[in-house]
Design a protein around this nucleic acid. Structure first.
Length: 543
DNA sequence: TCGTTAAAG
DNA sequence: TTTTCTTTAACGA
């Protein structure tokens, strides 16, 4: 009809896949605990359920959602199995596994075309999502011709553009094959959204869950977006909503309801753009937001690479007023960071130039502050040396550096009064170590060979902590199985005391413990491991 | 280069 | 809707 007037530029239209692993943490946790496959499962961080599997969601009738307190979840579904998700290692590894499968499959796909090699950008978003720009792959497949193309999966929307329809047909077949491959290799299911932009692909990926895929044909995308709450658009966050809301209030408007409101208030022309830029105090963001609200997203898929750009380890808590407690917490972070830094060295042969230390004090609300210093040489060299001894020494060095920053920039010391609620240690500004064999040549080899061929029991042996006499770890990668099918962790994640196998009782304890936690000396509470536990203070004295 | 803010999962 | 733990990008200084 009006297709001729719209002049769709088929040559420029892209084909983007958005992949999203189903309830990622829960899937990964259950994969290594097959006996939980049909049970309701939640993953805990502190006292909160950060994810749940679909069995739990069904049984709890919607009462278990993203940041639900354990106590609430247990009331809604007393049978629920709680798994401690405070160690993110298995999730990071599963993420790398999935990415390795994607890259291998993509590479094979390109190769089989026989038109030479070309890159296919993959952009990670969190541990469980990835965007893939398959435009080039689709174009080559269309050129190669052959089979009759058809859609795979659910179709949302419509289009008048034949070229775009065919491109998304091909893309949906790629998505379908890729999903099968990922599930076959990793035993993890996922959804896919297929469209011409990251925005639309991402909206599509959530339309049919779990383990399914949706094609978003963009003919009516603008109208569809117009009717939605703008907060549901990726990129339109809390702060932007706040600023626009405040503006609406000042100007006697109704509160912001739909993306159409935003377009109406600020227009889609040049001058409207300027007024939103003023409200947001940022030209580029204003343009982006206005486009978003009209269903337009031209942002490219940026290749993320395999290695993360930075590493952070953080801990938040109700209160920390004693220097020994601060030292203990810092040392736990340092241990985690050293483990990951050593792993990073193995995989990528690079070193961080910057050390960041974050902190937050009571009364600061959610406001955390960070300070950066050059990463001490001692730490990086120890992190690239083999042996448990080097690991221990670098934990000590890192702890001392972080404690120094805390003392110097935040006034946290034995002689000061403070009440911290957060500590974090980060490593960033990585430099490739080009001189070594560890660099690019073996890098691909290592990553690929590390994850790909592991079939049976790979995971747990993969990331063994540097076996220190430091800090006996209560959440080791593979803890003993629960005694009762109703009890999934045997110790309180807060005080580490042995828990009742009766869930209701255990959860009551955890809740109470949470309330009075951090005010009680943790050293005393962890009596079981106390004799083997590394004492920060004594260690610092003798070094 | 440092530090903050915002966004995402 | 501030509760968990992480990663990234952009921006101002």
């Amino acid at each position: 009809m009006s297709a001729a007037r719209k002049r769709p530029r088929a040559s420029q239209s892209r084909a983007i896949l958005a992949l999203d692993l189903d309830c990622f943490y829960a899937q990964v946790a259950i994969r290594s605990r097959p006996h939980l496959a049909n049970r309701p499962v939640v993953i805990l961080q502190k006292h909160l359920c950060v994810t749940s599997n679909y069995v739990a969601r069904r049984l709890a009738h919607g009462a278990v959602q993203k940041m639900t307190p354990v106590s609430t979840a247990l009331k809604a579904c007393p049978d629920i199995v709680c798994i401690d998700g405070s160690d993110l290692t298995p999730f990071r590894e599963a993420n790398a596994e999935v990415l390795a499968v994607i890259r291998a499959w993509l590479h094979a796909k390109v190769t089989e075309l026989g038109v030479g090699s070309f890159p296919i950008p993959c952009q990670k978003l969190g541990f469980d999502e990835v965007f893939i720009d398959v435009s080039r792959l689709v174009a080559e497949q269309v050129t190669a011709g052959g089979r009759p193309w058809e859609f795979q999966g659910h179709i949302f929307g419509r289009t008048d553009d034949d070229a775009s329809r065919r491109a998304l047909m091909v893309a949906s077949q790629l998505a379908s094959e890729l999903r099968k491959e990922i599930t076959l290799r990793t035993k993890l299911t996922l959804c896919a959204g297929i469209s011409e932009s990251k925005l639309l692909a991402k909206l599509a990926v959530n339309m049919n869950k779990p383990n399914d895929q949706t094609i978003f044909l963009s003919g009516d995308a603008a109208q569809y977006i117009a009717g939605r709450h703008p907060r549901s658009l990726p990129g339109f966050g809390y702060a932007v909503e706040g600023k626009i809301s405040a503006w609406a209030k000042r100007n006697g408007k109704e509160d912001i309801k739909t993306a159409a409101d935003v377009v109406q208030w600020f227009g889609d022309g040049k001058k409207g753009f300027a007024s939103l830029a003023k409200v947001l105090d940022n030209d580029d963001q204003a343009r982006k937001i206005l486009e978003l609200c009209q269903g337009t997203d031209t942002s490219p898929v940026i290749e993320s690479g395999d290695a993360p750009k930075s590493l952070t380890s953080m801990d938040s808590f109700r209160s920390c007023t004693k220097i020994e407690d601060a030292e203990r917490r810092v040392t736990i972070r340092a241990k985690d960071m050293v483990t990951r830094l050593r792993r990073d060295w193995e995989l990528y042969g690079r070193r961080p130039k910057t050390l960041t230390v974050g902190f937050r004090f009571r009364g600061d609300g959610y406001h955390a502050t960070m300070r950066a210093i050059p990463m001490p040489q001692e730490i990086v060299s120890l992190c690239s040396s083999k042996g448990a001894d080097a690991a221990d020494r670098s934990i000590i060095a890192l702890s001392r550096a972080a404690l120094f920053v805390l003392k110097d920039h935040a006034g946290v010391s034995a002689s000061s009064t403070f009440d911290m609620t957060l500590i974090s240690i980060g490593a960033s500004a990585f430099t490739e170590n080009k001189t070594e064999k560890n660099a690019t040549s073996t890098k691909k080899e290592t990553v690929a060979s590390f994850f790909a061929p592991k079939e049976g029991k790979g995971m747990s042996s993969v990331c063994r902590p540097p076996n220190g006499r430091l800090l006996q770890n209560r959440s080791s990668p593979n803890p003993r199985r629960p005694l009762s099918p109703n009890a999934s962790f045997s110790r309180c994640p807060i005080c580490n005391e042995v828990l009742s196998s009766l869930l209701a009782k255990a959860s009551l304890h955890v809740d109470q413990c949470l309330r009075r936690s951090e005010t009680v000396s943790p050293a005393r509470k962890r009596s079981k491991t106390a004799s083997n536990t590394f004492r920060v203070d004594t260690f610092f004295q003798r070094k």
